[in-house]
C-alpha cells in the first residue's frame, strides 16, 4: 500500500458509542388500528443516529409511527424459570 494512502480504521468507542455495541429495538405500526409491533433492532452510537438508521433500514412499509428504545432500557420479566430474551440483529 502506498504511504500516501490512509488505512481505514474503526474506532468502536467513537462509532458504536462504546466498546460494546449499543443496540436499539425498533417498534412501528402501519395505521392507528394496528398495535405498535417489534420490527427489529439497530446498532447506533446515539439516539439521533438510531432513529435515522431505523427509518431507512425498516422501510418496507409506509409506517405511520415508529419508535426506537435502547435495548438496555428494557427490563426482562421472568415467568417461572423462563426469561424474555431480546433477539439482537
Amino acid at each position: 500500500m502506498s504511504e500516501t494512502l490512509r488505512r481505514k480504521t474503526f474506532d468502536p468507542g467513537r462509532e458504536r458509542g462504546g466498546a460494546v455495541p449499543k443496540y436499539y429495538e425498533v417498534f412501528a405500526r402501519k395505521n392507528s388500528d394496528d398495535s405498535l409491533s417489534h420490527v427489529g433492532s439497530v446498532e447506533a452510537p446515539n439516539d439521533d443516529l438510531a432513529q435515522v438508521r431505523a427509518w431507512y433500514i425498516y422501510d418496507q412499509h409506509h409506517w405511520t409511527e415508529m419508535c426506537v428504545v435502547p435495548t438496555e432500557a428494557i427490563i426482562p420479566v421472568r415467568l417461572g424459570k423462563h426469561s424474555t430474551r431480546i433477539k439482537m440483529a
Binding site: 474503526f10 462509532e15 458504536r16 439497530v42 446498532e43 447506533a44 443516529l49 435515522v52 438508521r53 431507512y56 433500514i57
Partner: peptide, 8 residues
Amino acid sequence: KSLPDFAA
C-alpha cells in the same frame, strides 16, 4: 461507519 450507516 457501519452497515446501518450504509443503509442510512
